[in-house]
Design a protein around this nucleic acid. Structure first.
Length: 948
RNA sequence: GCGGGUAUGGUGAAAUUGGUAGACACGCCAGACUUAGGAUCUGGUGCCGCAAGGUGUGAAGGUUCGAGUCCUUUUACCCGCACCA
């Protein structure tokens, strides 16, 4: 009987599936544990060996927790809305649902081969109408909510309407749009319904507003801030421009402080928490209002340094600031217009790329210093960002590098005064930007104060004259929620007189309509504009033909209205999916109250760190919102987060001699002028030798090629980079499963190194892991079958076993899966040397190994005569007594330097050890008559004689 | 610029958290056995040295009887964020 992974893996995968072995129940006496993977987007390329890394880790943990007596929820699903399926549809006309289905089936097949213990009864797909009807429902809930700063939570919009009709909005303390006009209760009640609705939109947690968005012309859609990397789109790398559009937004800014505070309560890596803190970007300071001279306008600025108020030399507005046109003087108009024109032409990317060039122009207008009443010149400059704070700054050159550089650059020009120094520091070369170590001067009532004192005093005085107050500013912007795409969740929204109305949740889902083309319409509408049936009948409550909408008809007589043409972004469906797994078939709610109360939140979440400021932030936001309405019981959705590292590809490179069809082996390439070409990694063996015949047959380009060899071989160069089809460096897990089996793949991926570290894939060491499994097998069986006996094992054997139980338990709890694999190898080597074939050892060993290599564990367990699954056995308990040795070898060192070892019984006191050591002849030889000043003895550990 | 992280043999990496550095595996060397298998088994393998011995965890200091581990300074690389007022 030989170890035959193919056969036993197929057998046990079928067994698990037939017996529903990993089905989780929502009712149990056991404690619950929720282990979640970030669900994949089912792309056309299928899984590569990098994808399962996190899944294997979470599967080991989930299986271990089951052994430990937990009721484990370990589900899997698909984030199945997304751009690639849509782009494929545009190219081929194939419906995205069809390609998505195909891809999912392939993913499922690949996942099943690896032997995961997912409860597939709970599978979710975000593109499934039965799923997205609940995404639509949550959207409606957000629409019907506002954020009350007094109670510090979201509340039903009804309570806000109530307040408005009783007190107006002056007393309301809400997170809302800026610059809302104050109205009384009487005024509110006198407003038309439409006007009331327009006002409410400024308070709702999801709202329709004309905002400046990131528009990607190449993709034909807007993008959220986290979907833009270095000024270009994350997908495809296309340029992105700023554009004003009416879009749905999520008022995530309402939760900025809670999102920040919550980070201290969760067990995530410091780097992700820092990334989120950075993204939220809290800064504490003050807002200061400057009156514009000879005008009724005021300019509000945000500053973190109100203590430097007397150092204000001038002000700078972003070129896009709304007041620029109003305040610019006739003299300066031409220059200002030219500057605005020039900056708007520069792309975001250009503007980011060169931060060194100083540019700006004087508007000719002056503001008035709130205290000194001196004139303060108003400039515009593109170093001030329209999107941060108020888009205007008070410039204090003596205390800020950029203001300093700006002042120096435009020194002596009209509108640029001498720099005022308010610090007792030298600022002739550069600004003094420290927040400590100075005393304020030239600062009237702030003279002599430091940062802390000055800040407080300045704010107090500003409040007294009504020109400022303490303020906390966040960098976090509201998230744009509309996408001009087809393959996403439709909004449950129709429009009456241009105002959005929610469809009653009982008529959900609003299903994606069929379209002929997946491109935008000819008049620039999103793809849903192509749908024939895309209007809402408010009498029959169903989707009807768009032709039935009567344009420009007044409301009263009409009952059919156009539906929203945008769809939701990719992160909509993934912002709550962990809740759906709890109660996947629930038709009426996202999940039942009982199910959510039982499972609470995710205990362990494993996934990539690339979602730091996207999915992981949005999910926390929605969870907090749902918490405010008591739908979920916890403030945070994911208690512990582990970020698995990326598995990189090892591209293979051949060197073509320029202008020829000759290829030169790696180490000879110095003699030629060569070009590098990437070739399929599967043609290359572990020693970097290429299979020349295979290469000739790979693509026609190499058919007639000549090869310049070294030692009769052609060696390729290697490059570590992301696994990608275009580099021909993708390794498919199926190939590994076919060659060595899933258990080897699982063990090897863990053995490769620490889970959280990125590492290149190479199969050089895989035979070691495979050899271990064969060795393990041979402990149980030889060619004639089972060799296990019921004899009593030796103390040594028990020691090997319990050492392993201890180590593996600790490792799993610390997520150091790589060292567990080493421990298994040590254990099997030891048992093999002890010729161990004792049931009392091998039975518990099967269980200990089963989280890592579940198929072979099941088979061995079965061979031992059991008829149940090993996955349901209690994990063996570690017992200290088996590890206790009768005596121990102590290292004896002199001044920290190890000299010899001495064997001593374990139960000696320090004094007894000292006596034996001092009398030992080797000690005497080392001491040569000297006496140590210090003798350090830690019983069970070390002996050190020191100080001579 | 700010923040997070990493650095140990030919390679992937361990190190009970301050106590024999390099476990385990790959690779390499030597040998055994052979029913030639995807073999298997045994021994060796940081570096220098025939050896005794010396030396060694990116670099330089420090604390300590003792440092890969703690402190200070520094270098290189990786990942975020970045004109954030």
């Amino acid at each position: 009987m030989k170890y035959n992974p193919k056969e036993i893996e197929a057998k046990w995968q079928k067994y698990w599936s037939d017996n529903n072995t990993f089905k989780a129940s929502n009712q149990s006496n056991k404690p619950k544990y929720y282990v979640l993977d970030m669900f994949p987007y089912p792309s056309g390329a299928g899984l590569h060996v990098g994808h399962p890394l996190g899944y294997i880790a979470s599967d080991i943990y989930a299986r271990y927790k089951r052994h430990q007596g937990f009721n484990v929820l370990h589900p899997q699903g698909y984030d199945s809305f997304g751009l690639p399926a849509e782009q494929y549809a545009i190219q081929t006309g194939q419906h995205p649902a069809v390609t998505t289905e195909t891809n999912i089936n392939r993913y499922r097949e690949q996942l099943d081969k690896i032997g995961f213990s997912f409860d597939w009864n709970r599978e979710v797909r975000t593109s499934n109408p039965e799923y997205y009807k609940h995404t639509q429902r949550i959207f409606i809930q957000l629409f019907n909510a506002w954020y009350n700063k007094n109670t510090d939570k979201a509340e039903s919009i009804c309570t806000l309407i109530d307040l408005f009709s009783k007190e107006g909005n002056a007393t309301v303390n809400a997170v809302s749009d800026e610059n809302i006009e104050v109205f009384s209760a009487d005024q509110w009640n006198a407003f038309s319904a439409d006007d009331q609705e327009r006002i409410l939109l400024k308070y709702r947690l999801t709202y329709l507003a004309e905002t400046e968005v990131n528009w990607c012309p190449a993709l034909g859609t807007v993008l959220a801030n986290d979907e833009i990397v270095n000024g270009v789109s994350e997908r495809g790398g296309h340029p992105v421009i700023r554009k004003k559009m009416t879009q749905w937004s999520m008022r995530i800014s309402a939760y900025a402080e809670r999102l920040l505070q919550g980070l201290d309560t969760i067990d995530w890596s410091e780097s992700i928490k820092e990334a989120q803190r950075n993204w939220i970007g809290k800064s504490v300071g003050a807002s200061v209002t400057f009156n514009v001279k000879e005008s009724n306008e005021t300019i509000e600025v945000f500053t973190t340094r109100p203590d430097t108020i007397f150092g204000v030399n001038f002000m700078t507005l972003a070129p896009e600031h709304e007041l620029v046109a109003a305040i610019t003087t006739a003299d300066q108009k031409a220059a200002v217009d030219a500057y605005i024109q020039a900056t708007s032409k520069r792309s975001e990317r250009e503007r980011m790329a060169d931060v060194k060039t100083i540019s700006g122009v004087f508007t000719g207008a002056y503001a008035e210093h709130p205290f000194t009443k001196e004139p303060v010149a108003i400039w515009i400059g593109d170093y001030v960002l329209a999107g941060y704070g108020t888009g205007a700054v008070m410039a204090v050159p003596c205390g800020d590098e950029r203001d300093y550089a700006f002042a120096k650059h435009f020194a002596l020009q009209n509108g640029m005064p001498e720099i005022i120094n308010i610090f007792n520091k030298d600022i002739s070369e550069e600004a003094y930007t420290e927040k400590a170590g100075f005393e304020l001067q030239n600062s009237d009532f702030l003279n002599g104060m430091d940062y802390k004192e000055g800040t407080k005093k300045a704010i107090d005085e500003l409040e007294k004259i009504g020109q400022g107050k303490a303020k906390v500013n966040y960098r976090l912007r509201d998230a744009v929620f509309s996408r001009q795409r087809y393959w996403g969740e439709p909004f449950p929204v129709y429009y009456v007189n241009g105002l959005p109305k929610m469809i009653d949740p009982k008529y959900l889902p609003i299903e994606l309509p069929e379209v002929e083309k997946y491109l935008p319409t000819e008049d620039g509408q999103p793809p849903l504009g192509n749908a024939i049936n895309w209007a809402w009948d408010t009498v029959n409550n169903k989707v009807v033909s768009s032709d039935l909408v009567i344009p420009n008809e007044s409301e009263g007589s009409q009952t059919i209205f156009p539906l929203e043409l945008n769809t939701m972004p990719g992160w909509a469906g993934s912002s709550w999916y962990w809740l759906r797994y709890m109660d996947v078939d629930n038709e009426n709610e996202i999940a039942s109250k009982e199910a959510i109360d039982y499972w609470q939140n995710v205990d362990l979440y494993i996934g990539g760190s690339e979602h730091a400021t996207g999915h992981l932030l949005y999910s926390r936001f929605w969870n907090k919102f749902l918490k405010d309405f008591n739908i979920v019981p916890t403030e945070e959705p994911f208690q512990k987060l582990i970020n698995q590292g990326m598995i990189l590809g090892m591209s293979a490179i051949v060197y073509r001699v320029s202008g020829t069809n000759k290829y030169v082996s790696k180490n000879l390439k110095g003699d030629y002028e060569v070009e590098e070409l990437r070739v399929d990694v599967s043609l290359v063996n572990a020693s970097d030798e290429i299979d020349i015949e295979g290469l000739r047959n790979w693509i026609p380009e190499f058919k007639e090629a000549e090869f310049i060899l070294e030692n009769g071989k052609y060696y390729v160069g290697r490059e570590v980079e992301k696994m990608s089809k275009r580099w021909y460096n993708v390794v498919n897990p199926d190939d590994i499963c076919n060659e060595y089996g899933a258990d080897t793949l699982r063990l090897y991926e863990m053995f490769l190194g620490p889970l959280e570290q990125s590492k290149p894939w190479n199969t050089a060491g895989i035979t070691g892991v495979f050899g271990f499994l064969k060795k393990l097998w041979r402990l149980y069986a030889d060619d004639n079958g089972l060799i296990v006996t019921n004899d009593e094992p030796t103390a040594e054997m028990y020691k090997s076993l319990h050492k392993t139980i201890k180590k593996v338990t600790e490792d799993i709890e610390n997520f150091s899966f790589n060292t567990s694999v080493s421990q298994f190898m040590i254990c099997v080597n030891e048992l093999q040397q002890q010729k161990c074939n004792h049931r009392a050892i091998l039975e518990p060993l099967s269980i200990v190994i089963s989280p890592y290599a579940p198929h072979i564990a099941e088979e061995l367990w079965n061979m031992l005569g059991h008829t149940d699954s090993v996955s349901q056995q209690p994990f063996p308990k570690f017992e200290e007594k088996y590890l206790i040795e009768s005596s121990k070898e102590y290292p004896v060192s002199f001044n920290g330097k190890m000299r010899f070892k001495i064997e001593l019984p374990l139960d000696l006191t320090a004094e007894q050890i000292e006596e034996i050591i001092m009398n030992d002849e080797r000690t005497q030889a080392q001491l040569q008559g000297k006496t140590p000043k210090k003798v350090i003895i830690v019983p069970g550990k070390i002996i050190n004689l020191a100080g001579f």
